[in-house]
């Protein structure tokens, strides 16, 4: 721990002191909160799946498109790879390669959302959408969820909430990745100073990590 103290003396009362390890620690602590946020949702899912509605969850899971879910898994894994490659590239002073990998990462995130859009669209057009969203009835007809067995209704409730919250995190990820891209382009991030990029990378991997569990639970329980 002596590291920070030495740094601190060097800079002698610079208010915004730089602390590479400290920043990373702060990021990890934030990621724990993300982990537990989704952890709560997974707990709800497992409780209903294991203790209440095993059969219903199987049946409801059959309505999900494994191709789309699997495709999205591939897309997210690829984007995770390009993210770390972008970091390795910047560490090895290869700015253009890093920019290329970052753009691929962002493109993958966009692709994920596009697939999600078609997937949700397909569900909506079958009348599978949360029942209280009555304004959607105009486009898709009345919601059929209230007429489903209770367990199936809960499955779709959890499906929309979990993938929705995850999708929200993907979009937030795109926003911070764009900031990283900008910082790399203007040399705010370089081979000497990449802590910010690494921390955004960590966030992006957590988004991937959550999907790693979401995919088998939602798409493969059938």
């Amino acid at each position: 721990m002596s590291n920070s103290t030495e740094l601190h003396i060097e800079e002698n009362h610079d208010h915004e002191h730089e602390d590479y390890v400290g920043d990373k620690m702060g990021m990890w602590l934030f990621l724990f909160t993300e982990l537990l946020l989704f952890g709560g949702m997974f707990l709800a899912f497992l409780v209903y799946y294991i203790s209440f509605y095993t059969e219903d969850f199987h049946n409801a899971g059959k309505n999900l498109n494994v191709m789309m879910g699997g495709g999205n898994t591939l897309i997210l894994l690829t984007s995770s790879l390009t993210m770390v490659l972008a970091i390795t590239a910047i560490q090895k002073k290869n700015k253009f390669l890093s920019i290329f990998y970052l753009i691929v990462t962002i493109a993958c995130a966009g692709g994920f959302m596009v697939v999600k859009y078609f997937e949700w669209g397909a569900k909506f057009s079958h009348g599978l959408y949360p029942a209280k969203l009555t304004s959607l009835a105009e486009y898709f007809g009345p919601s059929i969820i209230p007429s489903l067995p209770k367990g199936e209704a809960i499955f779709f409730g959890l499906y929309f909430t979990m993938t929705g919250l995850h999708g929200f995190h993907v979009m937030a990820g795109v926003a911070v990745l764009l900031i990283v891209l900008y910082k790399v382009i203007v040399n705010d991030i370089d081979s000497e100073k990449f802590g910010y990029m690494e921390n955004v990378g960590l966030y992006w991997h957590v988004v991937d990590l959550i999907w790693i569990y979401l995919f088998p639970l939602l798409y493969l329980v059938a």
Binding site: L36, L37, G40, A44, F52, P130, K132, K150, L158
Partner: peptide, 27 residues
């Protein structure tokens, strides 16, 4: 704290969209 955050969020979502997570009448 995150656990209660998600719990309260689920209640809000339930109130707006009726997904049935905590509502005994919906299972």
């Amino acid at each position: 704290t995150p656990v209660v955050s998600i719990t309260l969020l689920l209640v809000i979502i339930e109130r707006f969209m009726g997904i049935g997570i905590f509502d005994p009448s919906k299972g």
